[in-house]
Nucleic acid binder design. Structure first.
Length: 427
DNA sequence: TCTGGGGTCCTTTTCCTT
DNA sequence: TCTGAAGGAAAAGGACCC
C-alpha cells in the first residue's frame, strides 16, 4: 500500500482542518545588536554603523591587537566628526537616534547632528555568521523556513508539532528563547494566516515581542495602519494613494476593486485590494536560485571617462573580476552581461547584452561589459559603476551548448548613439 | 554636504520574425 | 510587394526590499 492509497485526511500535511500559521521573524536592530555583543562597552552610547569602504577601525585593531574587543577603551573608538568622505549611515543605535541620526542619512549630515557618535564600519561577514546561526536554530525547530535576507525569515508553523498551540504563540516563544540562548540576540515574531499579515504583525510588539493576528483582527489591527505599512507599498505608491485621499489601509479596503484596477493598473490594483483585505496565498518558499549577481561601487569623487581613464578602467576590471569570482565560488554561469552607471546628477542608466554561451569568465565579462559601456554617454561625470551578470544557471546544470536557441540572431545593440567618446575606445 | 550595495520583480519599449 | 497584426525575446527603466 503506497501513500497514495491512504485517505487524504490521515496525511497531516494535507489535513484541511489545520489553519495556516505563518510566522514572520524579524531580528531586533540586527547589525547594532551584533556590534554591541562584540563591544559591550558601547551600550548606551550613540553608535552609528556605516561608512562603507573606509575601515576606520583598522588603526584601532592594530593598536589593540592583543586586547579583547570588550576591553578596548571607549575613547579609542573613531567618532563621526573625524570621518571624511561620502557614504550613508546604515543604522544607528537608539541613543544616536535621539540626535536625529537615522538610516540612509548622509555621513556629513549625521556628523553635524551628533559629532561625538562612535562610528563602526559595516561588517557583513560578522552579520552573515550570526545570520547563519539563528537560521540554523529556527530550522532545527521548524524546517519550513523562507530566507528573506540577513535578519528576516518566514516560517510555516502549520504542520509543526505545537505550531497550533495558542495560535502559534507557544512555538514562537520557543524559537525566541532558543535564538537568544544560542546567539544572545532578540527578535520579534508575528504569527498570522499568511505572510502579508505576519509581516505586519511582527512589528506590533518590538523588541522581543510576539503578536498573533487572526483573520478577524483585520478591522481592529490592520485597517488603522498607514498604507505604507503594507509590504510592497513603497514611497511612490504611497504618494499616489495619498493624492487620492487614501492614507489608511481601511480607506484602501473601502475602495471599489474595479476603481483600484483602473487607477493602479489591473494587476497592481487587484493586489492592493487583496492586501487591504488581508488576502495573500503566497507559500513559504524554502529554496530559490539566484537570478543575477552584481558588483557596484561608488567612487570617492565623481570620475570622468577621459580625465580619469586609468582609474576608471582599473575599477571596471576589478568589478568584473569580483563578479566572476562570486559566480565561480557559488557555482553559477550567466549569459546576460550588463553595466550600470550613476551620473553625477544621480540619473541611472543600464545597458546589457546577452551572449550565446554561458560564462563566469572575468575576461569575457569584462569584454562584453566594455561593449555595453560603449553605448552610454561617457561625457558626463559618474559617481557609480556596476557590473551585473544575469540569466544564471548552476554550472553543473548548464544546458548543452548544442541546445541553445537556434541561430540566436546576433543582435545589434538597440541604441548605439554616435558618441565621439567612442573613438577614444576606453573600454 | 547630500543620498550604499545587492538583490527581485514588473512594465514598457524596441526589435525581429512570421 | 506592401502593410499590419501578433507575439516572443531582449533591453531599459523603475519600484521596492533588506
Amino acid at each position: 500500500m503506497t501513500a497514495a492509497h491512504l485517505p487524504a485526511l490521515l496525511d497531516p500535511a494535507t489535513d484541511p482542518a489545520l489553519p495556516r500559521r505563518i510566522a514572520h521573524l524579524d531580528m531586533d536592530a540586527f547589525y547594532a545588536s551584533v556590534e554591541l555583543l562584540r563591544y559591550p562597552q558601547l551600550r548606551g552610547l550613540p553608535v552609528v554603523i556605516g561608512g562603507g569602504r573606509r575601515r576606520l577601525d583598522e588603526a584601532l585593531r592594530e593598536e589593540y591587537a592583543e586586547t579583547p574587543l570588550a576591553e578596548i577603551p571607549v575613547r579609542a573608538f573613531p567618532v563621526l566628526k573625524d570621518y571624511v568622505g561620502r557614504g550613508v549611515i546604515t543604522t544607528a543605535t537608539y541613543p544616536a537616534r535621539q540626535f536625529g541620526v537615522g538610516s540612509a542619512m548622509g555621513m556629513m549630515k549625521a556628523a553635524r547632528l551628533c559629532p561625538q557618535a562612535i562610528l563602526l564600519p559595516v561588517d557583513f561577514d560578522q552579520y552573515r555568521q550570526f545570520s547563519r546561526r539563528f537560521k540554523a536554530v529556527i530550522r532545527d525547530i521548524s524546517p519550513l523556513m523562507e530566507d528573506r535576507g540577513v535578519d528576516e525569515v518566514y516560517i510555516d508553523f502549520t504542520d509543526v508539532p505545537g505550531g497550533q498551540r495558542e495560535g502559534g504563540r507557544v512555538l514562537a516563544r520557543l524559537i525566541q528563547k532558543s535564538i537568544f540562548d544560542a546567539t544572545g540576540l532578540t527578535c520579534s515574531v508575528g504569527v498570522a494566516p499568511n505572510k502579508l499579515l505576519a509581516k505586519m504583525a511582527s512589528e506590533f510588539n518590538k523588541p522581543n515581542g510576539i503578536s498573533v493576528v487572526g483573520a478577524d483582527d483585520l478591522q481592529a489591527l490592520i485597517w488603522p495602519l498607514a498604507c505604507r505599512k503594507i509590504n510592497g507599498v513603497g514611497p511612490k505608491a504611497d504618494e499616489k494613494l495619498k493624492a487620492r485621499g487614501i492614507h489608511l489601509i481601511g480607506e484602501l479596503a473601502a475602495r471599489e476593486r474595479d476603481w483600484l484596477m483602473q487607477t493602479f493598473g489591473k494587476r497592481h490594483g487587484a493586489w492592493l485590494h487583496d492586501a487591504a483585505w488581508g488576502r495573500d496565498d503566497r507559500p513559504v518558499v524554502t529554496e530559490s536560485e539566484p537570478v543575477s549577481m552584481s558588483r557596484e561601487t561608488t567612487f570617492d569623487r565623481d570620475l570622468h571617462a577621459v580625465q580619469d581613464k586609468a582609474e576608471l578602467g582599473a575599477v571596471f576590471t576589478r568589478l568584473c573580476e569580483q563578479v566572476a569570482a562570486d559566480l565561480q565560488r557559488k557555482g553559477y554561469v550567466g549569459k546576460t552581461i550588463g553595466v550600470k552607471l550613476r551620473y553625477d546628477d544621480f540619473r541611472i542608466v543600464t545597458r546589457d547584452q546577452t551572449l550565446e554561451a554561458w560564462t563566469a569568465d572575468a575576461a569575457t565579462i569584462r569584454q562584453t561589459a566594455g561593449q555595453c559601456l560603449k553605448r552610454v554617454d561617457l561625457d558626463r561625470r559618474m559617481r557609480l559603476l556596476g557590473v551585473r551578470v544575469g540569466s544564471l544557471v548552476k554550472t553543473a546544470e548548464m544546458p548543452d551548448p548544442a541546445s541553445k536557441p537556434a541561430l540566436a540572431s546576433v543582435k545589434r545593440p538597440v541604441d548605439a548613439p554616435d558618441l565621439k567618446v567612442q573613438s577614444l575606445s576606453l573600454f
